[in-house]
C-alpha cells in the first residue's frame, strides 16, 4: 500500500514549494494570530494598569511566551504536512518548510500590526508611555533605568514599523523555525526506506 503511494506521487521527490505553502500558511496564520493577540492583550493590560515597577512586566512575560510559540511553528508545520499532504518528507524539505513558516508568521504579524494602527492609531504611543512609566517606577540606578527606558521604548516603536519588522524579523525567526522544522521531520516523518508489515 505504502509502496503504491510512493509510486503514485507520494514520494518526497515530488514535493514542491506549492505543496508546502498550505501547511506553512495554516500554521503561520494560526500562530501569528495567537502571538499577535497575546501581544495586543498584554499591551492593553499594561496601558490600563498602574506602573508597578516589576521587572517581570506583562510585556516581558508575553515576549517569552511568544518566543516559545514562534519556535514551535516549524515543527507543527511539518506535523501538518506529514498528516495532510505527504508522510515522506526529507530533512531539507522540512528545514525549508520551517523557514517558510517562520517567514509567514513574521509577515502576517506585521500585517496585523499595520491593520491595528488604523483601528487604534494611538496604541503604540500609549504602550511606549506605559512601558516607560513602569521602568521609571523600578528601583534601579539612574543610568541603568535610562538604558532600559531607551531600549524598551525603541523595541515597542520598532514593532509598529512594518518594513522593519519584516526585514529584520525573517532571518532569525526563519532560521530558528528551520531548525524546529528538522526536529519535526525527526519526530513525525516516515522514512522512505522504512518497511511496514
Amino acid at each position: 500500500m505504502e509502496q503504491d503511494e510512493q509510486t503514485t506521487g507520494s514520494s518526497s521527490d515530488s514535493i514542491s514549494f506549492g505543496d508546502m505553502l498550505p501547511s506553512a500558511g495554516v500554521v503561520g496564520l494560526i500562530f501569528s494570530i495567537i502571538t499577535f493577540a497575546i501581544g495586543l492583550a498584554v499591551g492593553y493590560q499594561q496601558i490600563g494598569s498602574e506602573p508597578s515597577g516589576a521587572i517581570f512586566s506583562p510585556t516581558m512575560l508575553s515576549g517569552t511566551v511568544i518566543c516559545l510559540i514562534s519556535l514551535l511553528g516549524g515543527t507543527l508545520a511539518v506535523w501538518h504536512f506529514v498528516k495532510e499532504v505527504n508522510p515522506y518528507i526529507k530533512l531539507g524539505q522540512g528545514a525549508a518548510l520551517g523557514f517558510i513558516t517562520g517567514a509567514i508568521m513574521v509577515i502576517l504579524t506585521a500585517v496585523y500590526g499595520e491593520i491595528w494602527n488604523f483601528i487604534d492609531p494611538e496604541y503604540t504611543d500609549k504602550l511606549v508611555e506605559a512601558t516607560i512609566a513602569n521602568v521609571e517606577a523600578m528601583d534601579l540606578p539612574d543610568a541603568q533605568r535610562q538604558t532600559m527606558v531607551d531600549s524598551m521604548a525603541s523595541t515597542v516603536r520598532q514593532q509598529s514599523s512594518f518594513l522593519s519588522q519584516v526585514l529584520w524579523g525573517i532571518p532569525i525567526t526563519g532560521i530558528l523555525n528551520l531548525l524546529s522544522g528538522m526536529v519535526g521531520v525527526k519526530i513525525f516523518a516516515k522514512k522512505e526506506d522504512q518497511e511496514t508489515f
Partner: peptide, 18 residues
C-alpha cells in the same frame, strides 16, 4: 539608533539590559 543586531532579535528576545 537601535543596533542592527538588536533589531534582528527583537521578535524572539525581550533584550532586557539587566
Amino acid at each position: 539608533e537601535r543596533h542592527w543586531a538588536e533589531k534582528m532579535f527583537f521578535g524572539v528576545c525581550h533584550q532586557l539590559p539587566d
